[in-house]
């Protein structure tokens, strides 16, 4: 088990290989469909959001506003990442992202960006919204809440020991590619 703390260095990322279990502590920013499209179309990050050495989490959490105006995260599992494939590689490159948390994996363009820029894909357990919400110690801020709505906003989360598995590394390795090829071969034998 490798413990990662944000901001993460390129050296730490390059040391990771497909199949490694990690925990993430520090700051992560949620960002999903609307945010990726917006950034890819040239939109600026709001002041206060710095992704350099940072982690994007593909997640639309359930957030409850408390009486004192703060937010409580009551469910926070990953959403399917493949929808961000048209944008993710460019965003990694442009903003210096070191880690992308999501589920289901991403494709060739992102894999190439991980290799070129030093980034990894960190697979969280889909559907495990309660286990992962327990890792969110504080909701520090929210951006684009009005524009994109709660699930699509950028939430700045303080996390501790958030569990994930490296399924795409910075050396061209992808568990998703491996499992697809192996399962396609097994299926071909059974048709």
């Amino acid at each position: 088990m490798t413990a990662l703390h944000t901001p993460i260095t390129e050296e730490q990322i390059r040391a990771l290989k497909v199949g490694d279990a990690v925990t993430i502590s520090g700051i992560v920013f949620t960002g999903r469909d609307a945010v990726h499209k917006y950034l890819h179309e040239g939109g600026a990050l709001p002041p206060g959001v710095d992704l350099r050495g940072g982690v994007i989490y593909h997640c639309g959490p359930v957030m409850m506003k408390q009486d004192d105006g703060s937010w409580k995260c009551t469910a926070a599992g990953p959403t399917t990442s493949i929808r961000e494939e048209p944008y993710q590689g460019d965003i990694i490159h442009q903003f210096g992202v070191r880690g992308v948390i999501g589920k289901g994996g991403l494709g060739e363009k992102t894999l190439a960006a991980c290799q070129a820029d030093g980034c990894v894909y960190l697979h969280a357990i889909g559907g495990a919204a309660q286990v992962l919400a327990e890792c969110v110690k504080k909701v520090r801020n929210v951006y684009f809440l009005e524009e994109f709505g709660s699930p699509e906003a950028i939430w700045e989360l303080e996390v501790e020991n958030f569990p994930a598995v490296v399924t795409m590394d910075s050396h061209g390795g992808s568990l998703h590619k491996e499992v697809f090829a192996a399962s396609a071969a097994e299926l071909a034998k059974r048709l």
Partner: peptide, 26 residues
């Protein structure tokens, strides 16, 4: 890691019921 995933799923089911919060955020 497959076994690890299923263990987290089991923990999650227990936690959601106990806290009366959504199993999955979606």
């Amino acid at each position: 890691i497959a076994e690890g995933a299923l263990k987290i799923i089991e923990q999650n089911i227990e936690l959601a019921k106990r806290k009366s919060q959504p199993i999955c955020q979606d």
